[in-house]
Design a binder for these strands. Sequence first.
DNA 1: TTATTATATTGCAATATTACGATTAATAAT
DNA 2: ATTATTAATCGTAATATTGCAATATAATAA
Lengths: 109, 109
Amino acid sequence: MGLTKSEIFTEKQNEISGIAKVFGHPARVAILQYLFKIDSCICGDLVEEIGLAQPTISQHLKELKNVGLIKGSIEGTSICYCIDKENWSSMKAIISEFLNQDLNTNNCC
Amino acid sequence: MGLTKSEIFTEKQNEISGIAKVFGHPARVAILQYLFKIDSCICGDLVEEIGLAQPTISQHLKELKNVGLIKGSIEGTSICYCIDKENWSSMKAIISEFLNQDLNTNNCC
DNA sequence: TTATTATATTGCAATATTACGATTAATAAT
DNA sequence: ATTATTAATCGTAATATTGCAATATAATAA
């Protein structure tokens, strides 16, 4: 089918997997790393930086924007993207909680 | 195409996205949460617990096993799965480093 | 107005993922 | 031996994702 049965899972489970899915492509990881590295808004040069065609980058940016991890503002003829740090923090809290599940468990095998 | 261009990204970027991709489905999130919750090997009942067909669960388990997050041992007619806590820890370190990128940055916008 | 520049959208082809019925393989129980 | 149980694999259908060429849009510049 190819259609995830979201309705049988909890909201939390869908939230966690939804965030993780966005991180599940190296181009989006690379874009986020670059935005953190330059630590400012970036207008343009992402296409050269990443090495994919402009429409492809645009699509990945859209997904990052949809999930709220980045935001863009119009700056003359170009658009400036940067990390939405507030959303990044809350996202980080959700994922961290999931990752730290192991801290409350014993070793069974 | 539908084919990710892994070769243009760093090994780290591919590693991060590879792990995240596994978390990118609610069934796999649910399986991991359940394994942590019962905090022991589990033989069977995952199919009833999650609510997907047996072959589907089996496929998700395979992906979790491929990336090393769980391990299974044969126990008579059934197979016992549990979290591979050592691998979980190293995976967590990789993802945490990525998530904590924001700690070294200023607020630009 | 007409370029120019930067980004988004559309349309499409190729590949990947999700899901499940049917089958298989392996052991356990009778 | 036969039958039941459990989980993997195979085959297949449906949907999603990735990537890019072509085109559209939007804002400035000439």
